[in-house]
Computed example of a mutant assay.
Amino acid sequence: MKTYSVLFVCMGNICRSPTAHGVFQHKVHALGLGHRIQVDSAGTHNYHPNSPPDSRSQAHASRRGYDLSRLRARQILDADFEVHDLILVMDWDNLALAQSESPPRHHPKIRRLTEFCESHDSPVVPDPYYGGERGFEEVLDLVEDACEGLLRHVQRQLG
């Protein structure tokens, strides 16, 4: 049986990418597809190794029914470019860094998460780390929208 693997990437892997990881994983499991779709997240920088997601990200996600508490930050590895079918970055800097760290043959699988948005029109998922509460809500709005489109895309890939 065919499987598909998605990796979400931001800078430190404590705000945006774990939020996307948690939201997408929740949606995958709600459809009973956890055995066919693997979900992971990583950061372009190793700022917070093995740390849980930012408490603000966890609190905002929890209010919408997503549990991020078991996720832990890690840096993207060379092996990630080999094993994942799709690597979704949160912004232009993440895109440039991921592409610079990966062999050119893997560049087509590195895309921006917001390419999958169906309702929102944003080129990136902005970093909420230094902003206020509204930033974490905006991240969730964009991530939820993109994850719906992403789920349809992955289901088509699985056949």
Rank of each mutant, 00 (worst) to 15 (best):
K109P: 04
D141E: 13
G131A: 03
A61G: 05
P128T: 04
D93P: 00
Q25S: 15
Y129V: 00
A20C: 11
D78N: 05
G159Y: 09
L151V: 05
F116H: 09
K109W: 12
C117T: 13
Y130C: 00
P126H: 09
P52E: 10
T19M: 14
S119H: 15
R156M: 14
V125M: 05
A96N: 15
V9N: 01
A20G: 08
M1N: 11
Y130G: 05
G131P: 07
T3W: 09
E148T: 15
Y4P: 00
S102H: 02
L150V: 09
V9G: 05
S122C: 12
L88A: 02
G65I: 05
A96K: 15
A96Q: 15
A61P: 01
K2I: 14
D85L: 02
R74C: 07
E148L: 04
V6I: 15
Q25V: 00
R64G: 07
E144K: 03
H107G: 03
L7G: 02
P103N: 13
D121T: 13
C15V: 07
M11R: 12
V23M: 06
D145I: 07
H35T: 13
A59H: 14
G43Q: 05
A20F: 06
E82S: 10
L88C: 04
P18D: 09
D78G: 11
D93K: 14
A61E: 06
R64F: 03
H107A: 08
R112L: 15
A30E: 15
I87H: 10
V89C: 10
V139H: 01
V139I: 01
R70N: 13
T19N: 06
A96E: 14
P126R: 03
G131L: 01
H45F: 09
S57Q: 00
I37A: 02
L33P: 00
G131M: 01
V124K: 06
D85A: 02
R74F: 07
H45G: 08
P123L: 06
H153K: 13
M11S: 10
H48M: 08
G12Y: 06
S69F: 01
I87F: 09
S100L: 12
H153N: 12
L158T: 08
E144I: 06
S5W: 12
V139E: 03
G131E: 10
K109D: 10
N46K: 07
A30R: 14
G159D: 15
Q25A: 11
L158E: 12
Y130W: 13
E138P: 00
H21T: 03
D91K: 02
L33K: 04
L31I: 00
F24Q: 04
F81Y: 14
V89T: 10
H60W: 06
Y66N: 03
T3L: 12
C147T: 13
R72K: 14
H153V: 01
L97D: 07
D91A: 06
P104L: 08
D127C: 08
R56L: 10
E137M: 05
H107C: 06
H107Y: 02
E118H: 03
C15Y: 05
E133A: 13
R56C: 05
F136M: 06
V89F: 06
S41N: 02
S57P: 00
K2C: 11
E133C: 02
R152W: 04
S62V: 03
V6A: 08
S5V: 00
P53R: 04
L158I: 14
R63S: 12
M11N: 11
P104W: 00
V125S: 01
R63G: 12
P104C: 12
S119Q: 15
R16H: 09
E144N: 06
D67E: 10
T19I: 11
